[in-house]
Amino acid sequence: MQGTNIILVLVVLTNLKLLGSSRVGSSIRVVAAQGVVLGLLPILAHAHEISWRYAGLAVGTVALKGIVFPWFLFRAVREAEVAREIEPFVGYVASLLAGVSILAVSFWMCTRLPMPEAIASAWLAPVAIFSIFAGLFLIVSRKRAVSQVLGFLVLENGVYTFGVGVAPQASLLVEAGVLLDVFVAVFVMGITIFHINREFDHIDTDRLSSLKD
């Protein structure tokens, strides 16, 4: 119970940190840390019934979200040579305040949401919804392609949190399928970043909308 709560608070804090930081490198590290912490969630949330399934899920999540994705994104960033996000659509202080408001809205939403009895922690559903919205906010408010990929990962972490905590009955196949989807998505996005960069010397998605002949 307490372990789950600490993990959920860490997820909230990492999301707030992502909303308020401009450095791409440290943001990737924060997302990696969030992935590792979330990998421990299935073990702690269902501590009374340790099984191979949860252990496998934890190992897979940590390996993919904590090691493979960050490595891949670091490589994309190194090739595209971006050190920091410049001039996002929404400033960092404003993003932070928006993040807190999103958190409040998520908590309010979950008071109206009927929940199944066997939920690991009262904070689980609000934190999952907060992650989803924070990820969406990152995607729409940042200009760099790398930051948008990070937003997508945060969004997926929210879905994962909800899945692990609320529906432990879901089969391993579904969870593995989701992980595989995300893996492919990040792979494709990494390649896209590389190609945008080779074509245009920058990965500023905002400037892709103006056409040239």
Partner: peptide, 15 residues
């Protein structure tokens, strides 16, 4: 940014 961050931490704790 740091000070707003402190406010965000306090607000999170409150929620």
């Amino acid at each position: 940014q740091l000070l707003v961050g402190a406010g965000a931490l306090a607000a999170t704790a409150f929620l």
